[in-house]
Design a protein around this nucleic acid. Sequence first.
DNA 1: TTGAAAGCGCTACCAT
DNA 2: ATGGTAGCGCTTTCAA
Lengths: 334, 334
Amino acid sequence: MNIYDIAKEAGVSIATVSRIINNKGNVSPKTQDKVLKVMQDMGYTPNAFARALGLNSIKMVGVLCSDVADKHYAKAVSIIEKELRSNGYDAILCCTGKDLKDKKKAINVLLSKRVDAMILVGSVFQEKDDNSHIKEAAETIPVMIINGTYDYENTYSVSCDEEESVYTCVKKLVEDNHKEILYIYDVESLSGINKKNGYLRGLTESNIPINEQLIVKCDRTLDSVKDAVDRVIENDIQFSAIIAAEDVLAVGAMKSLTKKRIRVPRQVVVVGFNNSVLAECSTPALTSIDNKIEILCESAVKTLLDVFDGKKTKKHQIIKGNIVYRESFVPNKM
Amino acid sequence: MNIYDIAKEAGVSIATVSRIINNKGNVSPKTQDKVLKVMQDMGYTPNAFARALGLNSIKMVGVLCSDVADKHYAKAVSIIEKELRSNGYDAILCCTGKDLKDKKKAINVLLSKRVDAMILVGSVFQEKDDNSHIKEAAETIPVMIINGTYDYENTYSVSCDEEESVYTCVKKLVEDNHKEILYIYDVESLSGINKKNGYLRGLTESNIPINEQLIVKCDRTLDSVKDAVDRVIENDIQFSAIIAAEDVLAVGAMKSLTKKRIRVPRQVVVVGFNNSVLAECSTPALTSIDNKIEILCESAVKTLLDVFDGKKTKKHQIIKGNIVYRESFVPNKM
DNA sequence: TTGAAAGCGCTACCAT
DNA sequence: ATGGTAGCGCTTTCAA
């Protein structure tokens, strides 16, 4: 069944039917009602492909993340999808992994499917050296990145100031007289670097010399963190606080401490990052830095919609994170 | 740039170009090379909308879940997306929530976008009374449900036998001399009912009378579980084991026990369901039933691809779960 | 092996 | 307010 069938049945031209479908006005209420009724009765749905061909838009946005199985990204994708859908757009999900080749491939697939825009979730999509593939993509459609920035035409970004968040956290710890703060991280993505810089600046501004032995890198697995922390302890390196760049890492660290009968938060306080479900569920419950992912994602979609509408928009937005206190660290003066 | 430009540049007709794009054969290698080179040089990408219109397929599959922020569904979606993509299909994600009206709306949107098929993730999509909207959808495109079943033409399913999994778990506990087993659950979806039935059958077949006070319902939040378990303990209802229908519930229960200085697994053993990251991260690490979600999802996509190819396929598949032992319960005879 | 041309179902412009 | 019609870029049939 197509627009011709409806037109014939209603005794009008396809132009009129099209106007009604698209709410273009210039149709008498009477005709409108008649046609609407016919469409209803015949259970007509316009062919999305033909519309897309005519309008050169299928009202879909590509949403890329390295892995939706990761709680953090899942949350983001969930919010983005909801926001898009409530504005009439569908989300095509692409889990790309972290390999640049795969990321490029995904972008090309999306481009060839002619999505209306792309949202890249996470700083993994900001390559350190060459982002020319993004520049190219942005020549066709607007590109939005969450927690990253590109300096190209037709690209947009919404980020949480992670550097500042960790910095603030260090300050809080220092105020509580913690001077040896162990920093645990996994990836060296831009996000990872920002967090670490926040740690370094926090110490520097507090006139605490930086001890490389207190900066520990490991994989994002419980075992890897436990090994790492075990090693620090066995080497007799003193610390009274831990900041982890990811909640999982913080949990792993606490497991190591617990096994060694080191009390959290009595002897060592711990702060995670991302304020994920894990933070609530761990024992003791983890104090964690919240990067306000909801706000980030909502802004991202809103901005994109403005771009679609040809409105002027801020190209780059930065939002501040905040610390959610639980059991593993509560400042004295709270 | 379109197929005409390529045809002109290569000095052939658009029919030939089309044949080459679609690998339809009947083209001399010489022509093929020439055209391919032109396409490459000009950076040509076929217009997906026009193709979709001609082929009446855009190579996309709708993936519905009630909430991707839920780790469990996120995992499933992640696998499905990967599987689809590596077979040339894109995934349109729809997070529907649990409200029937919203689920129907999402299905209609997907139908109107003319996806090639739909995959519904989770038993939330199997309504207890009326699934006629599914029947209707399946008249247009194949519908696959994971952990559920419909009895309609053109519907398919892949499920984990959750009833059997919980049943087996009860048996294991009974073998270890646990007779008072507390069962905690949240939702009464079909999946929820199946699990509970497994619990009931396990007890019945072990000749243990069913004690309604040991069957506890609560919300899927830590506080709700803790309250629920607290109440059981305060009412002096004895139990030496807990089975929870969800890992989060198990974690909440353990938190309650710990606070009351009841040792896990020494005094009470605990088993969760889903074998999620939480299970690894909780303290003590949670023994949990794995529902083999990877296998489920891979089978689902594989089946759908077979349907696309017009191959004969099993309409309904059932896969067995298994228990992953960690700290919160290890059978004596292991 | 190749090409011409008729759709696919819609949008939008130009008449009336 | 309504209708006629030319695209949109591709696939596919039929002829050569």
